[in-house]
Design a protein around this nucleic acid. Structure first.
Length: 293
DNA sequence: CGGTTATGTATAG
DNA sequence: TATACCTAACCGC
């Protein structure tokens, strides 16, 4: 499922294939027919990701706000300009990369296929198409509403101008456990359940430690690791946090994480069994030895 | 074919 | 804290 890196890849894909293109917009499923009608025939001006939300700005001054939620995903197809991504969002198969193939991007483009499944929105340009399924949020808003939505979000580690010290200030100002705060999009925008578990492991921090008890260098370390790992995620289209040494030379796909979904398995650093527990309605994973405090 | 599961969040109580 | 939302792949029967 999509954490911030997937949404940044989506914004990049939309920007590269649809900017300046006049778009036919429809809702084959019917649940977004009114919104699609507002955008139909407009031209995409720009695409922006902030945390897990994407904002598509059109030349009629309207904005489409999309949040994929737990199982939303986009699929793409078209001519050679669409090379690079055919599906981004919730994995359609376990472990699937977000750029599984170049099918449909080889040569020519004969128009979009008949919609498969519940397609909330379909965009069609002269060069290709994009289908959205299963989003938590998909709504047409104004520029002012976009500004208000973004004002509620904390700094995004993937935005070049974002401020890690603002994240640190927010984190250290509350006694709320650090593992809860990392999932709070007002504190830091874009982290999800995998990055939460992995950056806490890398910094050796127990998920239950109150934010107020963290030291400045630990907050800075969390920010720096998050920036580095999420940039890797944007580049690779998947979340890989382990080093080649930690993987014992095995391929990335066989040992991508240190603790996420590794309950009961030995820690890759110390061999202690990884623990799991529910924290703020999501399962958090940690090594009780490496992350004792 | 039905139940389970998932990288998320809003709302009710 | 619990539940609803509402999508598709996967797994066991």
């Amino acid at each position: 499922m999509p954490e911030g890196h997937s949404v940044h890849r989506l914004a990049r894909q939309f920007g590269s294939v649809f900017t300046g293109e006049r778009l036919t917009v429809s809702s084959p499923q019917g649940r977004f027919s009114a919104g699609a009608a507002q955008l139909d025939g407009a031209t995409l001006v720009s695409a922006l990701a902030h945390g897990k939300q994407m904002f598509l700005r059109f030349d009629n001054r309207l904005v489409l706000r999309v949040h994929l939620g737990l199982y939303g995903a986009w699929s793409f197809g078209g001519d050679e300009t669409f090379r690079g991504a055919s599906s981004i969002g919730a994995p359609r198969r376990v472990g699937e990369s977000e750029q599984p193939s170049d099918d449909g991007a080889a040569s020519g483009y004969g128009g979009p296929p008949a919609p498969v499944g519940a397609v909330r929105v379909r965009f069609v340009s002269a060069h290709g198409w994009a289908d959205l399924r299963g989003p938590t949020a998909c709504e047409v808003i104004t520029g002012a509403e976009e500004k208000a939505a973004r004002a509620k979000l904390g700094p995004d580690p993937l935005q070049p101008r974002s401020d890690g010290t603002l994240f640190a200030r927010k984190l250290l100002s509350s006694i709320t456990p650090v593992g809860v705060q990392l999932m709070n999009q007002a504190v830091i925008a874009g982290i999800g359940n995998i990055y939460r578990a992995e950056v806490l492991f890398l910094q050796g921090i127990n998920p239950w430690r109150p934010g107020k008890q963290l030291h400045d260098d630990e907050a800075a370390g969390l920010w720096e690791d998050t920036v580095r790992l999420m940039k890797d995620g944007v580049r690779d289209g998947r979340i890989v946090t382990t080093t080649p040494e930690a993987r014992n030379g095995r391929p990335k796909r066989s040992a991508p994480h240190y603790v996420y979904k590794r309950t009961g398995q030995p820690c890759r650093r110390c061999g202690t069994a990884i623990l799991a527990a529910l924290m703020a309605a999501r399962t958090v994973y940690w090594c009780p030895q490496c992350q004792e405090h």
